[in-house]
């Protein structure tokens, strides 16, 4: 059973799992019908915030639950309070239902590296054991921390269930639509004056493969997943060839609000601190224990994304300039 299939990531995960012949039936669960083609996935319209989910699990004899239903964008969920409702209450209900269902043997949770927060006191790289030093009081970051808390509680109460938590770096790729891809898609990219965040990305295909890998294998634990290497924010924007406007930090939230009102991208405060200080996670255990090798490094994933985005204004200006000078030279 896969939750959150109305959104692209969930739908693609479900499709990927359905394509695997070793997996019998794949159930897709969401409140709204998915826009994307689901293929062999059987869609069940149910709300994970509602106890009815327990009946679905019992009736269908679900043995593996893949929870991808954590929403990152308040806009798509219909506001921040609704987003929190889906993320936190939805997870609670889902886990409560799983706890009651004796048939459930495996739980895979798609979490995110935002559980580490972002701040000036952060170590250069987070390992799975490290506690966050600075955590935002709102937004996805807090939701993810609470979701993981409930997942840990569930793992304690049902030690027979194999619980895998995947802390994924920001997904990026041609098909991903997230605050981060929207942000890099802005015609002029605003950044915080005087700071340069270190970023890690995970290619969307790798993300889906990792969820599949966790579903078909028995690997309990919490794992950081990210592509190799690091990009500095300024470097990433230069690679995109987009003009950048560096704004002082006190204007960041009003800029984010303006961007939100213009419906260009959807920013929460924890994403602003992320774009200020950045965050890098240690992926040693992804290889050693989880046994997963991403196909794309951070830079390669970003390159794929860049190609889907088209050239930025700065690239166009330079190419115009070089061709002009080329003509000038003869």
């Amino acid at each position: 059973m896969v939750t959150g299939v109305s959104r692209d990531a969930g739908a693609r995960c479900a499709r990927r799992l359905a394509d695997d012949p070793s997996i019998g039936t794949v159930l897709g669960i969401d409140v709204v019908p998915p826009r994307a083609e689901l293929g062999r996935v059987r869609f069940v319209r149910a709300d994970i915030r509602n106890p009815v989910i327990a009946k679905v699990i019992a009736a269908e004899g679900v043995d593996t639950v893949v929870h991808t239903g954590v929403v990152a964008t308040p806009g798509s969920a219909g506001g921040r309070s609704s987003m929190k409702e889906i993320n936190v209450i939805g997870t609670m209900q889902l886990l409560a239902a799983c706890q009651k269902a004796p048939g459930v043997a495996k739980l895979v949770v798609k979490s995110s590296t935002t559980v580490y927060g972002a701040g000036p006191r952060d170590p250069a790289m987070f390992t799975e054991e490290m506690a966050p030093r600075a955590i935002a009081q709102t937004g996805l970051s807090k939701d993810a921390v609470e979701v993981e808390g409930y997942v840990r509680g569930f793992a304690r109460r049902r030690p027979d269930v194999c619980v895998t938590t995947l802390r994924m770096a920001n997904w990026i790729g041609p098909k991903t639509d997230s605050p981060m891809t929207r942000y890099f898609g802005l015609p002029v990219v605003p950044t915080v004056f005087g700071y340069d965040a270190r970023l890690q990305f995970l290619h969307e295909d790798d993300g889906i493969e990792a969820i599949h890998h966790a579903t078909v294998n028995e690997i309990p634990g919490t794992f950081n997943l990210a592509g190799d290497g690091v990009l500095a924010l300024s470097q990433a924007i230069r690679r995109l060839g987009r003009p950048v406007v560096r704004l002082p930090s006190f204007t960041a939230s009003s800029t984010a609000a303006a961007v939100r009102r213009a419906r260009l991208a959807d920013f929460s405060p924890d994403q602003i601190t992320f774009l200020t200080y950045g965050r890098v996670v240690d992926t040693t255990r992804m290889r050693s224990d989880f046994g997963f090798e991403p196909q794309f490094t951070t830079a390669e994933a970003f390159e794929e994304f860049r190609q889907s985005l088209g050239p930025g204004a700065a690239t166009q200006v330079t190419s115009l300039l070089t061709s002009g000078l080329g003509a000038f030279r003869g």
Partner: peptide, 15 residues
């Protein structure tokens, strides 16, 4: 290299 971003930064941010 600087203008096109074709340089490497390590995980500590060392350029």
């Amino acid at each position: 290299r600087r203008l096109t971003g074709e340089y490497e930064v390590d995980e500590f941010g060392f350029d």
